[in-house]
Amino acid sequence: MNFLLEALFGGLMAGMLYSLIALGFVLIYKASGVFNFAQGAMVLFAALAMARFSEWIPATLGFDNKLLANTLAFAAATIVMVGVAWVIERFALRHLVNQEGITLLMATLGIAYMLDGVGQMLFGSDIYRIDVGIPKDPMFLFQDTFQGGVLINKEDLVASLIAACLVIALSLFFQKTSTGRALRAVADDHQAAQSIGIPLGRIWVIVWSVAGFAALVAGIIWGSKLGVQFSLSLVALKALPVVILGGLTSVPGAIIGGLLIGVGEKLSEIYLGPFLGGGIEIWFAYVMALMFLLVRPQGLFGERIIDRV
């Protein structure tokens, strides 16, 4: 029982981190109706900015307070991601208003390569370390209930709590604020949104800024766990099955999809791995996404699209 609970908790915490990255895909899709292939590059760019600012700021200002350095670095990285959102809207999206979805899709691919190149040009291409004080020691829970307790990694627990808080905040933002409703209106129909006075450019800057902030938080967490390196952008590939499973237009779907894939990966690796030769964690999410595409293409919580001709 202890082993099963450890696997479940580990899967749930990994799933929350997948959901955090998947949020970037959902946010952009809800505001522009296009799948954002640049989200992985945004995670890497934001993590590079955070790692390098946390080094440069203490050296420049001449102090050793780690908490203050991390706070200033986080603020600076947030400003950078807002600036990236403004540049993307000003020089790319503004010229593609009311274009076909494939045009915007190709634009996000170009943005991804641009961010990869510019990020490494500005911040370097070495492996960098992010230390924001998240405890990494393991701990035991439910020792009174189960013999020996349940082993939990503190870093995964703190990271999943941060991800959960951000997911809840973004869900409330979309459902309860006028800006969130404007974002949904823009996603439904650009021309109709403009006709009722919704400023499309400002809305796109806002949503790319929010997606950039989500990428920054995800980059800090994954950078703390894995180190900041080029392969960090590939972590976002694991979020693709999450959005397919949960639905491209659903923030709650990103949460549920991430949790299902996180738990499914852990349990399948443990209980099916010995029979199938291991390595299930690598491909499990994509097989599950393929199954959903065959049975329910819109995902668990996605909206069914019906075209009338």
Rank of each mutant, 00 (worst) to 15 (best):
Y113E: 10
T103L: 10
A85T: 00
L68F: 08
L23T: 02
R90N: 05
A38R: 06
G33A: 14
E100K: 14
L104R: 12
A69K: 05
I88C: 03
G15I: 06
A107H: 00
A73I: 09
P138F: 02
F91S: 01
A22H: 01
G33W: 14
A85N: 00
F123P: 09
N70E: 09
E55P: 05
E55F: 14
P138C: 03
W56K: 07
N70G: 06
T78Y: 01
T71R: 00
M114G: 00
W86F: 04
Q147G: 14
K30A: 01
G119C: 11
Y29R: 06
L67N: 04
I88F: 05
E89V: 11
Y18P: 07
L27V: 10
P135R: 01
F140S: 04
R129S: 12
L44G: 06
H95D: 01
L109N: 00
I79F: 13
G33H: 14
F25K: 01
L105V: 06
L20I: 09
V34N: 10
A46L: 03
K66C: 00
F74V: 11
K66S: 11
Q120W: 09
D137M: 12
V118R: 05
V34K: 08
M114W: 10
R52E: 15
D144T: 13
A47E: 12
F91Q: 00
T78E: 00
A59W: 07
T71G: 15
V87S: 00
S32K: 02
P135S: 07
A22C: 04
W56R: 11
R94T: 09
K66M: 06
N153I: 01
R90Q: 10
D126I: 05
N65P: 01
K30M: 05
H95S: 06
L151H: 06
Y113T: 14
D156R: 14
Y113W: 12
M121S: 10
W56Q: 13
F35S: 05
K154G: 07
G24C: 10
L48D: 11
D116V: 09
V82A: 10
T60E: 13
L151P: 02
V87H: 00
I102E: 14
A107V: 14
D137T: 13
L96C: 04
I21E: 07
F63P: 04
V118G: 09
F74Q: 08
V97T: 06
Y29N: 13
L23C: 07
K154A: 13
M50N: 12
T145L: 15
S32R: 06
G119H: 11
G119A: 11
Q147L: 12
A69R: 09
F37L: 15
Y128Q: 15
G133M: 08
F140K: 05
I111P: 03
A59N: 11
I79D: 01
D137A: 15
K136I: 02
I130T: 12
V80H: 03
L72V: 07
M42K: 03
D131W: 03
V34Y: 08
L104Y: 08
M121W: 15
N153F: 02
E155S: 03
Q39T: 05
V87D: 00
G24D: 03
L122A: 10
